[in-house]
């Protein structure tokens, strides 16, 4: 076991999403699809079989008009910090928790497709490739060369755009720096948000904005009662939204 002091010195990349600012425009989801070569089919109506690393959940307070309130929860991988459920069940070590950055990654070439992790994940983050990806027409030309496309029979998930981390580190190392500045490594979804609702950075670094935001009384996480310590925090001033997050979503 690590002491609290040791843990706090490590880099822990995390995200804050201000759901009061989020309009549910889905820009983050589109950017994620584009960035990570996420395959899509011509018919995406079957949501149990489609693949999305970033899903937008629409939640209402259930009240009658004019008291109805709607909130959108963009949901990337929560990057659980404690007893990461998917990592602890994977029989092939295809997913692991990186001690240095706190990123939970997925090695698709090692995945055997047992989908145990999908059953274990409390946030339904993981998606299974039921078919080989098909890039219709010119869509193949927009593929990101930094991310390898997956084949059928493997599970995939949000990696906090770990290839962007590699790229940022590449540049930093070239400049002779062993650390990254706050804005150097940002996932595609955060970059794409037109409302500025999402922030990204090192939760343990007091100079990063996110480390201040997660201490605010507006901050909460989804299903905190499971104690998986997700590193994606949501922010809201509304009490009913904060209360709802711990029950379902």
């Amino acid at each position: 076991m690590k002491t609290r002091e040791e843990t706090s010195r490590l880099i822990r990349y995390g995200m804050t999403i201000d759901v009061d600012k989020c309009t549910g425009c889905s820009n983050c989801a589109v950017a994620c699809h584009m960035e990570n070569n996420v395959p899509c089919r011509t018919d995406e109506t079957d949501k149990s079989r489609n693949i999305a690393w970033m899903r937008i959940y629409k939640v209402t307070n259930g009240a009658e008009y004019p008291l109805t309130r709607i909130v959108y929860f963009p949901r990337p991988c929560m990057q659980c910090d404690h007893h990461t459920p998917c990592v602890s069940v994977c029989p092939a070590s295809a997913t692991n928790y990186d001690e240095l950055t706190g990123v939970v990654d997925q090695i698709n070439t090692r995945c055997i497709g047992c989908r145990y992790c999908m059953a274990a994940c409390p946030y339904m983050v993981r998606c299974f490739n039921w078919w080989d990806p098909v890039w219709v027409g010119d869509t193949g030309k927009q593929l990101n060369p930094d991310v390898a496309p997956r084949m059928r029979g493997v599970v995939e998930k949000c990696t906090f755009c770990s290839h962007r981390y590699s790229k940022a580190k590449n540049k930093a190392h070239n400049d002779g720096r062993g650390y990254l500045k706050e804005d150097e490594y940002v996932p595609a979804c955060v970059e794409a948000c037109p409302m500025g609702a999402m922030r990204f950075g090192d939760l343990n670094n007091p100079e990063h904005e996110v480390s201040r935001l997660i201490k605010s009384p507006r901050a909460f996480r989804l299903l905190e009662k499971l104690h998986t310590e997700p590193k994606v925090y949501y922010l809201s001033s509304s009490r009913w939204i904060r209360d709802m997050a711990d029950n379902y979503v």
Binding site: E99, I107, S162, H163
Partner: peptide, 8 residues
Amino acid sequence: TACFLCHK
């Protein structure tokens, strides 16, 4: 030896 260091 974290996987994502080299794998993408």
